[in-house]
Protein backbone atom coordinates (compact mmCIF):
# COMPACT_ATOMS: atom_id res chain seq x y z
CA UNK A 1 0.00 0.00 0.00
CA UNK A 2 2.69 2.38 1.09
CA UNK A 3 4.61 1.56 -2.00
CA UNK A 4 1.73 2.35 -4.28
CA UNK A 5 1.07 5.72 -2.67
CA UNK A 6 4.72 6.51 -2.99
CA UNK A 7 4.59 5.57 -6.64
CA UNK A 8 1.48 7.63 -7.18
CA UNK A 9 3.13 10.65 -5.68
CA UNK A 10 6.12 10.03 -7.88
CA UNK A 11 3.75 9.83 -10.80
CA UNK A 12 2.11 13.12 -9.89
CA UNK A 13 5.49 14.81 -9.51
CA UNK A 14 6.57 13.63 -12.93
CA UNK A 15 3.18 14.56 -14.36
CA UNK A 16 3.52 18.08 -12.98
CA UNK A 17 6.89 18.67 -14.62
CA UNK A 18 5.99 17.17 -17.98
CA UNK A 19 2.49 18.59 -17.80
CA UNK A 20 3.93 22.09 -17.81
CA UNK A 21 5.73 21.37 -21.09
CA UNK A 22 2.62 19.68 -22.45
CA UNK A 23 0.43 22.69 -21.70
CA UNK A 24 3.06 24.91 -23.30
CA UNK A 25 3.05 22.80 -26.49
CA UNK A 26 -0.73 22.77 -26.45
CA UNK A 27 -1.18 26.52 -26.05
CA UNK A 28 1.41 27.31 -28.70
CA UNK A 29 -0.24 25.02 -31.19
CA UNK A 30 -3.75 26.26 -30.68
CA UNK A 31 -3.00 29.97 -30.32
CA UNK A 32 -0.33 30.35 -32.98
CA UNK A 33 -0.77 27.25 -35.12
CA UNK A 34 2.91 26.63 -34.49
CA UNK A 35 4.11 23.15 -33.69
CA UNK A 36 6.98 24.15 -31.49
CA UNK A 37 9.56 21.38 -31.27
CA UNK A 38 12.19 23.67 -29.82
CA UNK A 39 10.93 23.32 -26.25
CA UNK A 40 13.83 20.96 -25.71
CA UNK A 41 16.17 23.83 -26.48
CA UNK A 42 14.17 26.31 -24.39
CA UNK A 43 14.29 23.78 -21.57
CA UNK A 44 18.08 23.49 -21.67
CA UNK A 45 18.43 27.22 -22.23
CA UNK A 46 16.37 27.96 -19.12
CA UNK A 47 18.31 25.38 -17.13
CA UNK A 48 21.61 26.95 -18.08
CA UNK A 49 20.19 30.39 -17.34
CA UNK A 50 19.34 29.24 -13.83
CA UNK A 51 22.73 27.58 -13.47
CA UNK A 52 24.55 30.75 -14.56
CA UNK A 53 22.47 32.85 -12.19
CA UNK A 54 23.35 30.52 -9.34
CA UNK A 55 27.04 30.64 -10.23
CA UNK A 56 27.50 34.31 -10.90
CA UNK A 57 24.67 36.26 -9.30
CA UNK A 58 23.14 34.84 -6.18
CA UNK A 59 22.89 31.32 -4.85
CA UNK A 60 19.51 31.75 -3.14
CA UNK A 61 17.37 28.82 -4.43
CA UNK A 62 14.19 30.83 -4.97
CA UNK A 63 16.11 33.45 -6.91
CA UNK A 64 17.63 30.70 -9.06
CA UNK A 65 14.17 29.28 -9.68
CA UNK A 66 12.90 32.66 -10.83
CA UNK A 67 15.95 33.17 -12.98
CA UNK A 68 15.18 29.83 -14.61
CA UNK A 69 11.68 31.04 -15.41
CA UNK A 70 13.06 34.33 -16.74
CA UNK A 71 15.55 32.48 -18.95
CA UNK A 72 12.66 30.38 -20.23
CA UNK A 73 10.81 33.56 -21.18
CA UNK A 74 13.88 34.81 -23.04
CA UNK A 75 14.21 31.48 -24.86
CA UNK A 76 10.55 31.46 -25.85
CA UNK A 77 10.68 35.02 -27.17
CA UNK A 78 13.86 34.18 -29.07
CA UNK A 79 12.15 31.29 -30.86
CA UNK A 80 9.17 33.53 -31.58
CA UNK A 81 11.37 36.23 -33.11
CA UNK A 82 13.40 33.78 -35.14
CA UNK A 83 10.66 31.52 -36.44
CA UNK A 84 7.11 32.63 -35.77
CA UNK A 85 7.28 36.29 -36.76
CA UNK A 86 9.05 35.86 -40.11
CA UNK A 87 7.06 32.84 -41.28
CA UNK A 88 3.60 33.21 -39.76
CA UNK A 89 1.87 34.65 -42.81
CA UNK A 90 3.66 32.68 -45.49
CA UNK A 91 2.40 29.62 -47.32
CA UNK A 92 2.97 26.17 -45.75
CA UNK A 93 3.38 27.89 -42.41
CA UNK A 94 2.73 24.83 -40.24
CA UNK A 95 5.42 22.63 -41.72
CA UNK A 96 7.88 25.47 -42.21
CA UNK A 97 7.32 26.64 -38.66
CA UNK A 98 7.89 23.16 -37.29
CA UNK A 99 11.10 22.69 -39.24
CA UNK A 100 12.20 26.18 -38.22
CA UNK A 101 11.81 25.34 -34.53
CA UNK A 102 13.81 22.16 -35.14
CA UNK A 103 16.55 24.22 -36.78
CA UNK A 104 16.57 26.61 -33.83
CA UNK A 105 16.91 23.71 -31.42
CA UNK A 106 19.72 22.23 -33.54
CA UNK A 107 21.67 25.51 -33.60
CA UNK A 108 20.86 26.34 -29.99
CA UNK A 109 21.86 22.89 -28.73
CA UNK A 110 25.19 23.13 -30.51
CA UNK A 111 25.84 26.60 -29.14
CA UNK A 112 25.04 25.41 -25.61
CA UNK A 113 27.35 22.46 -26.15
CA UNK A 114 30.10 24.78 -27.30
CA UNK A 115 29.72 27.17 -24.41
CA UNK A 116 29.13 24.78 -21.52
CA UNK A 117 30.61 21.49 -22.67
CA UNK A 118 28.94 18.12 -22.51
CA UNK A 119 29.42 17.73 -18.75
CA UNK A 120 26.21 17.51 -16.79
CA UNK A 121 25.40 20.30 -14.34
CA UNK A 122 23.26 20.14 -11.25
CA UNK A 123 21.04 22.85 -9.81
CA UNK A 124 20.62 23.29 -6.03
CA UNK A 125 17.61 21.86 -4.23
CA UNK A 126 15.08 24.65 -4.24
CA UNK A 127 12.88 23.42 -1.45
CA UNK A 128 15.40 22.10 1.07
CA UNK A 129 15.67 18.58 2.35
CA UNK A 130 12.96 18.47 5.01
CA UNK A 131 10.50 15.62 5.13
CA UNK A 132 6.92 15.41 6.21
CA UNK A 133 5.17 12.29 7.26
CA UNK A 134 1.46 12.08 6.53
CA UNK A 135 -0.32 8.80 7.31
CA UNK A 136 2.99 6.93 7.29
CA UNK A 137 3.85 8.19 3.83
CA UNK A 138 7.04 10.20 3.75
CA UNK A 139 6.86 13.22 1.51
CA UNK A 140 10.05 15.05 0.71
CA UNK A 141 9.97 18.83 0.50
CA UNK A 142 11.30 18.51 -2.99
CA UNK A 143 8.26 16.66 -4.28
CA UNK A 144 5.78 18.89 -2.51
CA UNK A 145 7.62 21.90 -3.84
CA UNK A 146 7.50 20.58 -7.39
CA UNK A 147 3.81 19.84 -7.19
CA UNK A 148 2.87 23.11 -5.54
CA UNK A 149 5.01 25.34 -7.71
CA UNK A 150 3.80 23.79 -10.93
CA UNK A 151 0.19 23.99 -9.77
CA UNK A 152 0.72 27.65 -8.92
CA UNK A 153 2.25 28.28 -12.32
CA UNK A 154 -0.54 26.51 -14.14
CA UNK A 155 -3.22 28.30 -12.11
CA UNK A 156 -1.59 31.65 -12.78
CA UNK A 157 -1.45 30.96 -16.50
CA UNK A 158 -5.03 29.73 -16.67
CA UNK A 159 -6.20 32.67 -14.59
CA UNK A 160 -4.27 35.09 -16.77
CA UNK A 161 -5.72 33.53 -19.89
CA UNK A 162 -9.22 33.78 -18.45
CA UNK A 163 -9.28 37.26 -17.02
CA UNK A 164 -6.76 39.57 -18.60
CA UNK A 165 -6.95 41.48 -21.83
CA UNK A 166 -3.91 39.63 -23.22
CA UNK A 167 -5.42 36.26 -22.31
CA UNK A 168 -8.61 37.25 -24.06
CA UNK A 169 -6.59 38.22 -27.10
CA UNK A 170 -4.82 34.88 -27.10
CA UNK A 171 -8.05 32.96 -26.78
CA UNK A 172 -9.68 35.05 -29.48
CA UNK A 173 -6.76 34.35 -31.78
CA UNK A 174 -7.06 30.63 -31.10
CA UNK A 175 -10.58 30.74 -32.47
CA UNK A 176 -10.56 33.09 -35.43
CA UNK A 177 -7.29 34.78 -36.40
CA UNK A 178 -8.91 36.88 -39.12
CA UNK A 179 -11.61 38.27 -36.90
CA UNK A 180 -8.95 38.82 -34.24
CA UNK A 181 -7.02 41.18 -36.44
CA UNK A 182 -10.23 43.10 -37.16
CA UNK A 183 -10.75 43.62 -33.44
CA UNK A 184 -7.27 45.07 -33.17
CA UNK A 185 -5.34 42.06 -31.98
CA UNK A 186 -1.85 41.99 -33.44
CA UNK A 187 -0.82 38.49 -34.39
CA UNK A 188 2.86 39.13 -33.91
CA UNK A 189 2.51 40.84 -30.57
CA UNK A 190 0.23 38.14 -29.27
CA UNK A 191 2.71 35.58 -30.58
CA UNK A 192 5.39 37.10 -28.38
CA UNK A 193 3.10 36.98 -25.35
CA UNK A 194 2.20 33.36 -25.98
CA UNK A 195 5.78 32.32 -26.44
CA UNK A 196 6.87 34.25 -23.36
CA UNK A 197 4.24 32.56 -21.19
CA UNK A 198 4.89 29.10 -22.55
CA UNK A 199 8.62 29.76 -22.24
CA UNK A 200 8.10 30.62 -18.58
CA UNK A 201 6.31 27.31 -18.05
CA UNK A 202 9.11 25.41 -19.77
CA UNK A 203 11.64 27.36 -17.72
CA UNK A 204 9.94 26.36 -14.49
CA UNK A 205 9.83 22.71 -15.50
CA UNK A 206 13.50 22.90 -16.51
CA UNK A 207 14.50 24.31 -13.16
CA UNK A 208 12.40 21.76 -11.30
CA UNK A 209 13.68 18.80 -13.27
CA UNK A 210 17.33 19.87 -13.25
CA UNK A 211 17.48 19.87 -9.46
CA UNK A 212 16.60 16.17 -9.28
CA UNK A 213 18.18 14.93 -12.49
CA UNK A 214 20.89 16.82 -14.25
CA UNK A 215 21.34 19.48 -16.88
CA UNK A 216 23.07 18.97 -20.21
CA UNK A 217 22.79 20.67 -23.62
CA UNK A 218 20.35 18.04 -24.84
CA UNK A 219 18.61 17.14 -21.60
CA UNK A 220 15.50 18.95 -22.79
CA UNK A 221 14.77 16.36 -25.42
CA UNK A 222 13.10 13.75 -23.24
CA UNK A 223 10.85 16.23 -21.41
CA UNK A 224 9.84 17.68 -24.75
CA UNK A 225 8.94 14.33 -26.25
CA UNK A 226 7.06 13.42 -23.07
CA UNK A 227 5.33 16.77 -23.13
CA UNK A 228 4.38 16.31 -26.77
CA UNK A 229 2.96 12.86 -26.04
CA UNK A 230 0.92 14.24 -23.17
CA UNK A 231 -0.35 17.11 -25.30
CA UNK A 232 -1.24 14.58 -27.98
CA UNK A 233 -3.16 12.41 -25.56
CA UNK A 234 -4.91 15.41 -24.05
CA UNK A 235 -5.78 16.84 -27.43
CA UNK A 236 -3.74 19.69 -28.79
CA UNK A 237 -5.18 23.01 -27.76
CA UNK A 238 -6.88 21.94 -24.58
CA UNK A 239 -5.30 22.88 -21.26
CA UNK A 240 -7.77 20.75 -19.32
CA UNK A 241 -7.11 17.75 -21.54
CA UNK A 242 -3.37 18.18 -21.13
CA UNK A 243 -3.67 18.23 -17.34
CA UNK A 244 -5.79 15.05 -17.31
CA UNK A 245 -3.44 13.37 -19.77
CA UNK A 246 -0.42 14.34 -17.66
CA UNK A 247 -1.97 12.70 -14.61
CA UNK A 248 -2.95 9.57 -16.54
CA UNK A 249 0.49 9.18 -18.05
CA UNK A 250 2.15 9.92 -14.72
CA UNK A 251 0.16 7.11 -13.11
CA UNK A 252 0.88 4.89 -16.06
CA UNK A 253 4.57 5.51 -15.61
CA UNK A 254 4.41 4.76 -11.90
CA UNK A 255 2.30 1.64 -12.30
CA UNK A 256 4.28 0.24 -15.21
CA UNK A 257 7.55 0.73 -13.35
CA UNK A 258 6.07 -1.06 -10.39
CA UNK A 259 4.40 -4.01 -12.05
CA UNK A 260 6.02 -4.58 -15.45
CA UNK A 261 9.38 -2.85 -15.40
CA UNK A 262 10.91 0.49 -16.23
CA UNK A 263 11.84 -0.55 -19.74
CA UNK A 264 8.24 -0.92 -20.78
CA UNK A 265 7.04 2.50 -19.66
CA UNK A 266 7.15 3.96 -23.14
CA UNK A 267 5.54 0.90 -24.67
CA UNK A 268 2.53 1.00 -22.36
CA UNK A 269 2.41 4.74 -22.72
CA UNK A 270 2.22 4.67 -26.49
CA UNK A 271 -0.15 1.76 -26.55
CA UNK A 272 -2.40 3.85 -24.35
CA UNK A 273 -1.99 6.92 -26.54
CA UNK A 274 -2.61 5.01 -29.77
CA UNK A 275 -5.68 3.32 -28.35
CA UNK A 276 -7.13 6.63 -27.18
CA UNK A 277 -6.28 8.35 -30.43
CA UNK A 278 -7.82 5.61 -32.54
CA UNK A 279 -11.10 6.11 -30.75
CA UNK A 280 -10.92 9.84 -30.26
CA UNK A 281 -8.53 11.28 -32.83
CA UNK A 282 -8.33 14.59 -31.06
CA UNK A 283 -7.33 13.27 -27.70
CA UNK A 284 -9.07 13.10 -24.35
CA UNK A 285 -10.70 16.47 -24.20
CA UNK A 286 -10.45 16.90 -27.92
CA UNK A 287 -11.53 20.06 -29.53
CA UNK A 288 -15.17 19.81 -30.34
CA UNK A 289 -15.14 21.83 -33.47
CA UNK A 290 -12.66 21.44 -36.25
CA UNK A 291 -9.13 22.41 -35.34
CA UNK A 292 -7.62 25.47 -36.88
CA UNK A 293 -6.84 24.94 -40.50
CA UNK A 294 -3.45 26.49 -40.90
Amino acid sequence: MNDIVFLLINGITVACIYGLVAVAVSITWSALGLLNLSYGFIFSFAGYGAWLAERHLWGEPIFVLFMGIAAGVVGGVLVCLLVFIPVHDKPNFTIRGMIGTLAVSLIGGQILLQSFGPKAKLLPEFFGYSKIKILDVTLTADKIGVIISSIIMLTLVVKWMKSSRRGLEIRAMMMNPHAASIVGIGVRKTGIYVMAVTGAMTGLSAALLSQTYYLSPFSGLTPMIKGVSIALLGGLGSVRGAVIAAIILGFNEALTTKFIGGRYVLITQFTLIIIVLIFRPRGIAGILDKAREA
Partner: peptide
Protein backbone atom coordinates in the same frame (compact mmCIF):
# COMPACT_ATOMS: atom_id res chain seq x y z
CA UNK B 1 -19.69 35.46 -39.19
CA UNK B 2 -16.43 36.96 -38.03
CA UNK B 3 -16.89 35.89 -34.45
CA UNK B 4 -15.03 33.86 -31.87
CA UNK B 5 -17.13 30.75 -31.43
CA UNK B 6 -15.85 29.68 -28.04
CA UNK B 7 -15.98 32.98 -26.18
CA UNK B 8 -19.03 33.91 -24.16
CA UNK B 9 -21.06 36.96 -25.10
CA UNK B 10 -19.49 38.85 -22.24
CA UNK B 11 -15.92 38.02 -23.27
CA UNK B 12 -16.77 38.68 -26.85
CA UNK B 13 -17.96 42.17 -26.03
CA UNK B 14 -14.83 42.73 -23.94
CA UNK B 15 -12.63 41.78 -26.85
CA UNK B 16 -13.84 44.91 -28.62
CA UNK B 17 -12.42 47.17 -25.92
CA UNK B 18 -8.93 47.51 -27.24
Amino acid sequence: DEIFHGLTVEEHLDSGAF
